[in-house]
Design a binder for these strands. Structure first.
Lengths: 160, 160
DNA sequence: TCCCCTTTTGACTATTATTGACATTTCCTA
DNA sequence: TAGGAAATGTCAATAATAGTCAAAAGGGGA
């Protein structure tokens, strides 16, 4: 017994697999009309079935001639790293970040240049946070974790 | 699927890339007539697609023999952008950051991955980090601006 | 049956595009 | 030099999308 969102998911997957470049561009309203459902149902499907952890990137634009673009990406060797960061909500101390970056470079997940850039940016960002509010050490760790996670996610999206 | 302003944007980009000096001079009224739209539509396209964050400078003159000149900023002349950042009270919206990073990637000044990482820092990570003691939206924009400005200054140093 | 998780909907919000009325600037000519 | 013609600029209103969020509905297992 398929639910509505299962059907919509299958529909998108079929379109994507038949497309060149594994990318489709749709209009939310049109699809909602075809499936005779609320437009926000499409958002639900996108959020639950076509997010980056499932291997998809979604971009959209509102307004006249608005669209939703769904792109299938190849999840490469970065996947376990991102999964790790996603599963563990733990905060990262500065030394943790250093360790992880060294590991990422050693395993050639990222280039040395990227590694030093990430380190530099994270330090810069934290220093810039000094004013006007004073983040606690714990908040800084949270921020660090967040920065690293988002950077890796972006790299995953960008591919190669 | 393309909107009118998408078409006009493509038209300008084609003209610019085919031109010598990456500069074109057009007449607003003529273009509006070709595309059968309101003249102010052209201003809209210029404002949203050909601003300094996207790597373009627009000049114009009114009155008899008026014109609009669109110039692609050469990547080795980032000064206008940095100046602009300093003039606009160091307050950068997310979309400005995205635009400028896309531009730097497009011009192959940074790699897509590097662009993605910077984007992650300045957009995703800042947004995902919400605690009471931390920056307001405006403060975030200011932080963004200063990070981007530092980065551009680095690029300027390295580039020449 | 009851509970919890997923799905579905709808009201409200946000963003983008398009147009048109009106303002401003510059050139040309009487 | 004044005034009209010929351009571009500005701004607000409207239309056309998509996004968010919370509440209701549904479904499967203990």
């Amino acid at each position: 017994m398929y639910s509505l969102c299962d059907s919509i998911e299958k529909y998108f997957i079929r379109l994507i697999d038949n497309s060149m470049g594994k990318t489709i561009t749709i209009q939310r309203g049109k699809v909602a009309e075809e499936f005779d459902c609320a437009p926000s149902q499409i958002n639900y499907v996108l959020t639950t079935r076509f997010n980056v952890f499932k291997g998809y990137i979604v971009e959209s634009r509102r307004g006249g001639s608005g669209y939703v673009k769904i792109q299938k990406i190849s999840i490469d060797r970065l996947e376990p790293v991102v999964n790790y960061l996603e599963m563990t909500e733990k905060d990262l101390r500065e030394s943790d970040v250093e360790d992880i970056l060294k590991w990422l470079v050693r395993e050639e997940y990222i280039t040395p240049r990227e590694g030093s850039m990430m380190r530099a940016i994270m330090v810069d960002a934290l220093n810039s946070f000094e004013t006007p509010s004073l983040p606690t050490s714990r908040e800084k760790n949270q921020l660090r974790s967040s920065l690293l996670r988002e950077m890796l996610l972006e790299v995953l999206k960008a591919g190669s």
